[in-house]
């Protein structure tokens, strides 16, 4: 196994050994383009990330975030364009506010807010996309699995 892969697997060995599930909403104009670029560059990424394409991060509502957690995800993150670069002018700004609101909601019921995060990047910046994916993976792996009632 190459060193990068080793580094990935080491990261997924959580204390309880169970594989985490992370749902990721990628905006079509920037994040998903950066994801494709990372793919073409054959960058090795953790398998916990489940990508969902949306036209713009502005499309993601608190319902999507909480439902993802409720239905088995241990973490959710949204990746969109840099501030001021949004293809639809301000979709990413709406997403930033909704993520902040969702994190406040989680905190009020005792769930770790780091389970929901947002990252911004430009379409050509695949390194930033990779860093975001790995950071999210590391954060969620360090948290216990999300119990559900």
């Amino acid at each position: 196994m190459t060193s990068a892969a080793a580094e990935n697997t080491r990261a997924t060995e959580t204390e309880d050994g169970a594989e985490r599930k992370i749902v990721a909403f990628f905006c079509r104009e920037c994040a998903y383009a950066a994801a494709d670029a990372a793919g073409n560059a054959r960058v090795s990424l953790p398998t916990t990330i489940r990508s969902v394409l949306v036209p713009c991060t502005g499309r993601v509502s608190p319902l999507h975030l909480l439902k993802a957690l409720a239905d088995g995800a241990d973490g959710v993150y949204v990746a969109g364009c840099l501030e001021g670069q949004c293809h639809y002018r301000e979709g990413n700004l709406h997403a930033l506010d909704r993520i902040e609101f969702a994190r406040a909601l989680l905190e009020s019921v005792g769930v770790e807010p780091e389970r929901v995060q947002m990252f911004t990047m430009s379409a050509a910046d695949s390194p930033k996309f990779v860093a975001a994916a790995r950071k999210m993976h590391e954060t969620i792996s360090s948290l216990p699995q999300l119990e559900r009632r």
Partner: peptide, 23 residues
């Protein structure tokens, strides 16, 4: 949304939270 919140909640929410202006 309420159901989803209840499923993952560790305890009942207490007090209210600030809402960002775009929400």
């Amino acid at each position: 949304l309420g159901a989803a919140l209840r499923t993952i909640a560790r305890h009942q929410p207490s007090g209210s939270i600030a809402v960002p202006d775009r929400v």
